[in-house]
Amino acid sequence: MGLEKLIKKLGDYLEGKEDSCDKIRELLEKLKHKQKKAEKKLADEDRNSKRKSLKLELKIIKAQQKKAEKLIKKIC
């Protein structure tokens, strides 16, 4: 590892970025799991109102994923 990279890593660590990145990655994993669960529920659901709310939940999850991915690109 080059000195420049090492200093950047150390800086990131001191600013708490490393920690944040891990947490965002962790969140992304959770969101993936949530998405799978919601998709499965949606496939099994017949009631219209419940389907509607599950579709909204999936939309929210996807928006969160998009934001988390963007944040990872920006700070990690």
Partner: peptide, 12 residues
């Protein structure tokens, strides 16, 4: 507090 909670709250 969760560090990434703010991000989550932006859409929920």
């Amino acid at each position: 507090d969760k560090v990434v909670e703010i991000e989550e709250l932006q859409v929920r």
